[in-house]
């Protein structure tokens, strides 16, 4: 009897095993929603066949901001200062347009201290997957309310929040973001499809992911608990993402599916569930969102999609290649140019 060689590990389209997309060991609490998002990121980048070295993963400060250390060890990570990840990401993406950026933030990092930078990143349409791991509390400082906590939700000790929450998705849509999604770390299938679509998007993609804090905000009075989210989640549609490198576009009868193509050839397919929803029609999107707030619905899915929106680099009209390696020949004007400039000051 001859020994059978173990099957080689499954590889993606660029021949890498999933192990090449793993990160360090998580130090978050057992059962933390953030770890689910981390796992989905590993899968999404592997499935999409993105070279890990092309990815930069940036964050601010907080539990969520620790997570870039837990995926894609072969990508460069940058754990910046509280609420200021967007500006660091902006600089990195301007310096090297070949990079694929993913920013991980939290509701404290984004909706409070970092709201200014969040707003301006979205306004500029910097190519970045901006994930907010949203749990309604500050975890790392032991459970204070964040600005996304719903009216009436309570802290563990019973304190009731009376301030209106900031709806980051609504805000992003108002600011003209070309990719706005809300999901739930308990809905892995949907989250995976959204992440893959976000990777294909060439502009800011805002993903507001409800990601329960098992230690400080998973109790009865919380509206960001696993139970509450599971009980109240209302997907707007089923999402199927077909990347450009797959040609398995099955024939689907019209009427049941809405397809939105991306510039790279990928397609997002929206299968209707229950209601008619066109995520490319801003009027429909905003009115749906407003109605859902009144009805206290927890809508998930890709809320708004505009794949053709020009990114900041295109608006700045910078050269196609990365700026950072350019040398004297491209950057330093000639001796004659300096002389001509000086002459104008004589």
């Amino acid at each position: 009897m001859s020994a059978t060689a173990p099957a080689p590990p499954k590889t993606n389209r660029i021949g890498l095993p999933k192990a090449d997309y793993e990160g360090g060991k998580s130090t978050l609490c057992l059962g933390c929603g953030h770890d689910v998002v981390t796992r989905q990121l590993v899968t999404a980048f592997w499935e999409m066949g993105i070279e890990p070295r092309r990815v930069v993963k940036l964050s601010g400060i907080g539990c969520s901001s620790k997570t870039p250390a837990y995926f894609l060890n072969r990508a460069w990570g940058f754990n910046a200062v509280h609420g200021r990840m967007p500006s660091v990401a902006t600089g990195a993406m301007l310096a090297n347009s070949d990079l694929i950026g993913v920013g991980v933030s939290g509701d404290g990092d984004t909706a409070s201290i970092g709201i200014g930078q969040f707003v301006h990143l979205v306004r500029r349409n910097i190519p970045l997957i901006y994930i907010v791991e949203n749990n309604g509390v500050y975890g790392l400082t032991k459970g204070q309310f964040s600005a996304t906590a719903d009216v009436g939700s309570t802290l563990k000790g019973g304190t009731v929040n009376e301030l209106l929450p900031i709806d980051l998705c609504g805000l992003a849509i108002e600011l003209g973001c070309g990719f706005v999604a809300r999901s739930f770390s308990g809905d892995m299938k949907q989250l995976q499809a959204i992440l893959q679509a976000a990777i294909a998007h060439r502009g800011t993609a805002v993903l507001d992911v409800i990601s329960p804090c098992v230690t400080f905000n998973d109790h009865e009075g919380s509206t960001k608990s696993y139970k509450y989210a599971k009980d109240h989640e209302e997907p707007l549609h089923d999402i199927g993402f077909v990347p450009f490198f797959e040609d398995t576009l099955a024939e689907i009868p019209p009427g049941e599916v809405r397809e939105v193509p991306f510039p790279d050839g990928s397609v997002v397919r929206f299968h209707t569930v229950g209601r008619e929803y066109d995520p490319t029609d801003k009027d429909v999107v905003l009115s749906t969102l407003h109605a859902s707030r009144k009805a206290k619905e927890f809508l998930t899915g890709i809320l708004y999609l505009e794949p053709e929106k020009p990114s900041f680099g295109r608006l700045l009209n910078t050269v196609d290649e990365p700026l950072h390696p350019l040398g004297e020949d491209r950057l330093r004007p000639s001796r004659e140019a300096l002389e001509a400039i000086l002459e104008s000051y004589r």
Partner: peptide
Amino acid sequence: TGKASVAIVQAEDEIAAIGMVIGAGWAGA
């Protein structure tokens, strides 16, 4: 080509301005 070998950004405040410089410097610009 009409394309620029430079990116100039008027930031939302000085905090963002230095953040962008740091991000760009980190990426090698």
